[in-house]
Simulated assay, not measured.
Amino acid sequence: MKLTTGALIATLAFGLIQPAFAAGSAGNLATVNGKPIKQSLYDFIAKEASARGQTVDDNVKNVIINKLIGSELVYQEAQRTGLDKQPDYQAKEELARRELLVNSFLQDYVKKHPVSDADVKLAYEKYKQELGDKEYSARHILVGTEAEAKDIIAQLGKGGDFAKLAKEKSKDPGSQEKGGDLGWFAPAGMVKPFSEAVAKLQKGKYTTTPVQTQFGWHVIKLEDTRATQPPAFDEVKEGLQKQLQQRNLEKLLTDLRAKAKIEGPAGAAAPAAAPAAK
Rank of each mutant, 00 (worst) to 15 (best):
E99L: 12
L122K: 14
Y127R: 12
K121T: 11
V63M: 06
T55Y: 02
L122M: 13
S137P: 00
E77F: 08
Y124W: 13
K67L: 15
A91H: 04
I64H: 02
S40T: 11
L68S: 01
V32N: 05
H113L: 08
S116H: 10
K111W: 09
R98Y: 02
S116F: 09
V56Y: 01
K61E: 05
L41S: 10
Y127M: 15
S116G: 09
G132K: 00
I65Y: 02
P87W: 09
D108I: 00
L122Y: 03
G82E: 06
K38S: 14
Q54W: 00
A78N: 07
L73Y: 01
L73W: 01
V74K: 09
E77C: 05
Q76P: 02
A96E: 04
S71H: 13
L100M: 05
K85G: 04
Q107V: 11
R139Q: 15
S104D: 07
E77G: 07
V63D: 08
R52Q: 15
L83N: 03
E72A: 10
F44Y: 10
L100V: 06
E94V: 00
L106E: 05
Y109S: 03
V74F: 07
N103Q: 14
D84C: 09
K38H: 08
Y75H: 13
K38M: 10
A78H: 02
N33W: 11
Y42D: 03
I37R: 06
V102A: 01
D43K: 04
I45E: 06
T55S: 11
S71P: 06
V110I: 07
P87M: 08
A46V: 10
D57T: 07
R98F: 04
S137D: 10
P87I: 05
A51E: 15
I45R: 07
D108M: 09
L100E: 02
L73H: 00
E94L: 03
L83I: 14
K47H: 07
K112E: 14
V102P: 00
A51T: 09
F105H: 10
E99V: 04
N66G: 08
S71M: 10
E99M: 12
H140G: 02
P114Q: 14
H113K: 11
K61W: 02
I141D: 10
Y109N: 02
V120E: 02
K35R: 13
A51H: 05
A46P: 04
H140V: 04
I141R: 13
A46L: 08
L106D: 06
L122E: 14
D133H: 08
T81Y: 03
A46T: 08
A118L: 14
G34S: 06
N62M: 07
E72D: 09
S50E: 14
V143P: 00
Q129G: 07
Q129H: 03
L68I: 03
P87Q: 11
I141N: 08
S137L: 14
V143T: 13
T55F: 03
N103V: 02
V63H: 03
R52T: 15
D84F: 14
V32F: 10
K35F: 04
D58T: 03
G34F: 07
I65L: 10
K47R: 14
R80Q: 12
K35I: 14
